[in-house]
Design a binder for these strands. Structure first.
Lengths: 338, 338
DNA sequence: GTACTGTGTCGAAGCGCTTCGACGCCGTAT
DNA sequence: ATACGGCGTCGAAGCGCTTCGACACAGTAC
């Protein structure tokens, strides 16, 4: 293993000079710099991460807490995680992967040990138990998702309320009056996951404004669950002509079941999905959808965290405006047979 | 920030004693141990990771290289990653997340800097460019996936060859003679991804033994690609009655298209999938499938890596035997109308 | 009683790096 | 010519921990 001292000796300078060449924190003459860089290359030197962390109390690592559950919005999670990792690298940071398993303890451990310089939390609940700890620790952090109380926190998220509203506006504009909302699994609502509740709020509020009737039903993914849910919906609201779906694994079952029941999309029934674009275009009907900007959220989180670590940036909340793309799953409401 | 020295002072012992209490590397009297542990709790002490890494040249971090591509087998990747992370924690290790982006450089960086004690590589290609570097570095590592040359490497993977064979045996046992294999996207084969090629080998070899006719077609996910692929298959082999699908995002399109063409599953056509169980049971037809044991692979990789780091364990290849679960998508081949 | 073995604890020497203050040198202002 | 301010470099002091050898003491064996 090659050390700084060896590089220094090889280049005929002192260790501190090599360090300054590496960090750029003091000016170094061009000739010296070149000589040092040459030695570094020749010897194949890599600074030792531990020593660096100890001396500078900076690990250049960002901890990313992902939810343990693999049963929902997996592609979104993965996309965020990858965006976070690649963006972090461009700023010289590595990502430490923490699963939700440890819960709040993970925050304590990471904060206490100086393992990471900062944290990104995903899958934030409205009243998340990790937050008090995070606030107290003073650990720089960014949340992907919005808790109920954001004071002193930095957050980024899609504007789910606006997303819900946007879906309804689109359907209302096409003349639909009775809308069914197919949501995430019941467990998601029970945990008071921010995005799910906020979407619902947005939907309901705008429904009131526009005079629409909205029926919300959580739904596990898969065909069997969807079949039951759909039957109940048409039972309760036979006049339903518009659907909003916020559950990737319910999209395809819904389309299949509608088809099977002889309800054509979009002639008889319109469907708006809230999902990544890839899911929307790969579905059996190209779906009108509001995209979940997973990459943008991941990138934004890292960039604002890095800004914080550099002493720039402030605590605040960034809500990404939703964008609805019209595809082939929505159309004018059918005129009711008189 | 609380340091070891402060704990030592508080407990009235020397720093080294505290260290030995923590590591258990020397025997400590029960009373001293308790006193120290008490002090640790009272002061809220957390060992500093950097200092520890520097002094012991062990970071207690395992690097996990995941593929950058988010367009294929995402749920499997995620499941593996989570299994790796949780298993690692039970052994006191954290996971550093590396994306494929950096490629071989990441290996060099991690190895050189002592950032991680070991690596786990996913998405290994048959002739992976990271391997020479890995071998040379002497970095303890485990591959999830099987390269062409495994000398000096530790690997874990599903036995894809046996998986392919198993699928064919099942279909052959039901009387099917003409089998179509719907594979991953063409890019996957172009990259010479191990699992895809090995599955194909297994399929073809056993097909020969059993006298079956096999037609293999790579396929992008989604409905449009699947429609084209399926049309070509029936065009070329109208007598096809059995399908093997190794592409999560092609499963549902295939089922939908078959249905649409009036081919009943499993009465007219049988389908065997190679996918996680969850996908198999959530599909519109409960699929006969060979499960991809994502969790087991992740867990196994970590456990063998930890064994290596502890000086136990050897370089070798573990192939997990495939298991086929019969569900509702396969049945006897239809007797051809005479 | 002495010699010896173990057990439990301590002190000190690093691990490889960053960073602060000091210092020599040269160019410019006086 | 003298004084002065930068610039470029060096030396040394840690960062908080692990670990090795030393040592004191008690217990056992003769």
């Amino acid at each position: 293993m090659v050390t700084l001292a060896e590089v220094a000796q090889h280049a005929g300078v002192s260790a501190s000079t090599v360090s300054y060449v590496l960090s750029g924190k003091r000016s170094i003459s061009a000739t010296t710099r070149q000589r040092v860089e040459q030695s570094i290359r020749e010897l194949g030197y890599h600074p030792n991460a531990g020593a660096r962390a100890l001396a500078s109390s900076r690990s250049n690592i960002i901890a990313l807490m992902i939810p343990l559950r693999t049963d929902m919005y997996v592609p979104v999670m993965m996309e965020i995680a990858i965006a976070v990792a690649t963006t972090a690298r461009t700023h010289g940071y590595d990502i430490l992967l923490l699963t939700g398993e440890e819960g709040p303890d993970a925050v304590r451990r990471v904060t206490g040990s100086g393992l990471a310089d900062a944290m990104i939390l995903m899958d934030v609940e409205l009243d998340d138990e990790r937050l008090p700890l995070l606030r107290r620790s003073g650990q720089p952090s960014v949340l992907i998702g919005l808790p109920a109380d954001t004071t002193g926190l930095t957050c980024v998220d899609l504007d789910w309320g606006a997303t819900g509203a946007l879906c309804l506006e689109h359907l209302a504009g096409l003349g639909h009056r009775d809308i069914a909302v197919i949501g995430e699994a019941p467990a998601v609502y029970e945990r008071h996951t921010g995005f799910a509740e906020r979407t619902l709020d947005g939907l309901r509020t705008r429904a009131k404004d526009l005079g629409l009737r909205v029926l919300h039903r959580p739904c596990e993914g898969g065909y069997d669950a969807m079949a039951v849910t759909l039957a109940r919906i048409f039972d309760e609201r036979p006049a339903t002509t518009g659907f909003v779906v916020q559950n990737e694994s319910a999209v395809e079952p819904l389309l299949a079941l509608l088809r099977q029941q002889g309800r054509a999309v979009p002639e008889d029934v319109s469907v708006v999905a809230i999902c990544p674009d890839q899911v929307a275009v790969q579905a059996s009907v190209r779906l009108t959808s509001v995209a979940v900007p997973a990459q943008e959220m991941g990138r934004n989180a890292v960039e604002r965290l890095v800004a914080k670590l550099d002493g720039r940036g402030t605590d605040d909340v960034v809500l990404i405006a939703p964008e609805l793309t019209v595809r082939a799953s929505t159309g004018p409401a059918p005129t009711p047979a008189v």
